[in-house]
Design a protein around this nucleic acid. Structure first.
Lengths: 252, 252
DNA sequence: GTTGACCTTCTCGTTACGTAAACCTTTATT
DNA sequence: AATAAAGGTTTACGTAACGAGAAGGTCAAC
């Protein structure tokens, strides 16, 4: 089955302009161009577009989608599993929001009182969730931005001790990473220690640990330019190395 | 309780820049400016910000939020009820999406086959939903854009006859509106007939009718510039008049 | 053979902020 | 008391992901 631009646009309910734009930025190229210069899409492109829509649904930036999908190691099934997890989390956050609206209505009727913090709780959760959807933006911010850290800590209700442990773990990782890179081997003891600490650190920030999520994050380390820049600043090639180490770690 | 800009920003998990921007566009003004030119916010502003966040969560444009909230007839409780309905719909759409992802995984494993249409079904629903969230954009498009109409009809699985009835109703409304405006009275028989037809027409496009939703839409007719432009094109003051007529109609 | 629906490229506009510069004020620490 | 750090101000330019048009070529049908 072949599609002209507007046929495909209708099928997927996006605009033709969107498809032209995706062509322009090399996110989705037509299968071929016919003799009059028209874009012609085939089955492969239909499937790729669906994938793109899944990412878009999770508010992943187009730039990041390009990096992820053009990566030769991109694993469609793994990625879909990831999407599924995120959507399920999104649903539970939506439920929280619904609750907040219901409480707000009740509070307006004078049936109960809400603190100012409660009024925004659901939005905060959503924020973190969205950031995680952007493949780890939140995580990067935790490292890079003390202010964000502070506020996150507060509403995550961590004890000061837990929080200190988390911060220390983060620092350890940054300190060990250059040494591990020096070994040149992502399977080396040092590299695996970094990966292990990274897992520990993750459990502080994510509600539940899974190998899939950990690997998904590793992919993002390379895909997201800002995240990549952060780890590469610690040491050259840091992001790629960490990713490899994590993949080996999760396969043990 | 008084808040400086960053205190409020932390409370609501938005950036200080966002609050300055909201000030600039007159969406949320500080309670006062202190002697050094600092913005100081109070309880009223906290509550207003929460309201704004609810709208934002539903992807309502800031311009529209301004119109809605600055309207002296703005009814907070009614608005919250509206939000609640939309969020509940959103949740059910999310469930559809989850289903689609699950099916896609199964289809990749070769356990089942999906048609190209099925691959995008959940996104289409989402699109319509999002449009409804933008307070009726979809509805306006149904009137204005035959192409969109066609595709909507198809995936909504309307019979041709149902579809014809809907289109005719829409045309009737547009034809009757100028005459109703001429009466000058939104409570006149003609105006109420328009409102009644409008309700009928709504039931074709909305999953369930409620007075609240109908009134919410009426508000939007005045708030959203594009929607307003559409009805005003039929006759001057058309949007406002229709809104009044609907409010009277829903209070009968 | 012309009308209308589709296609093309090009360019400019939009929304809701992010980010940086240049500077002033408040708070904390030496 | 002096100074550094944290937080406040305005101004101004940048950005993502298209939407909306202009100006023109192509194709099916009547």
């Amino acid at each position: 089955m072949e599609y002209t631009i507007s046929k495909l646009a209708k099928l997927a309910n996006v605009s033709a302009r969107t498809l032209r734009y995706y062509d322009e930025i090399n996110l989705l190229k037509p299968a071929r161009i016919n003799s009059s210069g028209y874009r012609i899409y085939g089955q492969k492109e239909v499937d790729r577009l669906q994938q793109i829509m899944f990412f878009r649904e999770l508010d992943v930036e187009l730039d990041t989608i390009i990096s992820i999908m053009n990566n030769p190691e991109f694993d469609k099934t793994r990625s879909l599993q990831n999407h599924l997890n995120q959507l399920i989390q999104k649903r539970s956050l939506l439920e929280k929001l619904i609750e907040t609206v219901e409480k707000t209505i009740a509070s307006d009727k004078g049936e109960l009182k809400m603190s100012n913090e409660q009024k925004f709780e659901a939005f905060k959760d959503n924020l973190i969730q969205e950031n995680e959807n952007k493949y780890g933006e939140e995580v990067r911010e935790k490292y890079g931005d003390k202010t964000v850290e502070e506020s996150n800590k507060k509403f995550k209700n961590m004890s000061q001790q837990q929080y200190n442990t988390m911060v220390k773990l983060g620092e350890d990782i940054l300190a060990l990473l250059p040494k591990a890179v020096e070994t040149g081997d992502p399977a080396s003891a040092l590299a695996q220690e970094v990966a292990s600490k990274h897992k520990e650190w993750l459990t502080f920030t994510w509600p539940s640990y899974s190998k899939e999520a950990h690997r998904g994050l590793a992919d993002m380390y390379v895909a997201d330019k800002r995240f990549k820049a952060f780890y590469d600043k610690a040491t050259e090639g840091g992001a790629e190395f960490l990713r490899e180490a994590i993949i080996i770690f999760t396969n043990k």
